[in-house]
């Protein structure tokens, strides 16, 4: 890993100022960025740690039935503190990586990276959540922009994520056992006005909504409704771990399981 300058601001305003340079890169828990830098795939001149910003940590229900999670909140903290408010989201966080990774990795870091096999993007997209940054709010449907791509501008910081709370939801993850990422992960969220289904690990362009399943499940929230569907007509990741047609098959299977397990 090449050397770099390091800053650990205590406020969002200080972080924003520190990131106002071409050489600067925000650092969440570092569970992806540090391995990437070790491989010299990234070599920022300045790392700005966001983990010292108290106002970006924690899980907080709002008065109007939503849940706000600070961008620097670790997966372990989400698993513990969101359980009473959004069990499916807490369950997703509880199964990311391994215990040590969950103690460092953050929701904001995961979403800023938008790994095509990361778990959180599916929850954010299926929930219709809002990404809150230091300068604006971005709807989930406008946020994800292809593999590792997002709507974030250079230096923009995810300060939090606001989740509407569904009536019931579930996340089903077919684990790639070596990496513990999702080979295929499906998050199903049922709201009073319809069902949203988001798929991670499968799409060649990253997380996507399976709209045919959403329509079918909004009419009939049952496993049979999923079983009757054709597999999604989306270009799939195809690699040594799973061929594209197998991933497409798994999307339907995991969606059915999520519907059956939703609570």
């Amino acid at each position: 890993m090449y050397d770099f300058d390091f800053a650990k601001p205590a406020t969002i305003a200080e972080a924003r100022a520190a990131l106002n340079s071409d050489e600067a890169q925000a650092l969440g828990g570092g569970q992806t960025l540090l391995p990437t830098m070790k491989q010299r795939l990234a070599a920022p001149g300045l790392l700005v740690s966001l983990t010292g910003i108290a106002e970006m940590k924690g899980v907080r229900p709002t008065g109007d039935g939503q849940l706000v999670i600070g961008g620097a909140t670790t997966h372990a903290m989400v698993a513990a503190e969101a359980a009473a408010h959004y069990p499916a989201l807490a369950d997703l966080a509880r199964r990311i990586g391994d215990p040590a990774v969950r103690n460092r990795g953050t929701i904001g870091g995961s979403l800023a990276n938008n790994d095509p096999s990361a778990c959180y993007p599916s929850a954010v997209l299926a929930s219709g959540a809002t990404i809150v940054t230091d300068s604006r709010e971005i709807a989930a449907d406008d946020y994800f922009d292809g593999m590792f791509g997002t709507a974030l501008e250079d230096g923009e910081i995810i300060t939090g994520v606001r989740f509407p709370l569904p009536r019931e939801a579930d996340y089903q993850k077919f684990v790639q056992p070596a990496s513990r990422f999702a080979l295929v992960g499906v998050f199903v969220a049922r709201f009073s006005d319809g069902v949203r289904v988001a798929v991670t690990g499968a799409g060649a362009q990253g997380v996507f909504r399976w709209t045919e399943a959403e329509a079918a499940l909004s009419a009939d929230f049952s496993r049979d409704a999923v079983a009757a569907l054709a597999v999604p007509d989306v270009e799939m990741i195809s690699d040594m771990h799973a061929a594209g047609d197998y991933r497409a098959h798994l999307v339907r299977v995991m969606t059915g399981r999520a519907v059956a397990a939703a609570r």
Partner: peptide
């Protein structure tokens, strides 16, 4: 253990 939590010391910066 860092502040009581399990952490992989190869993936945490000393200064952080």
């Amino acid at each position: 253990h860092v502040d009581g939590a399990l952490v992989k010391a190869c993936t945490a910066l000393a200064l952080d």
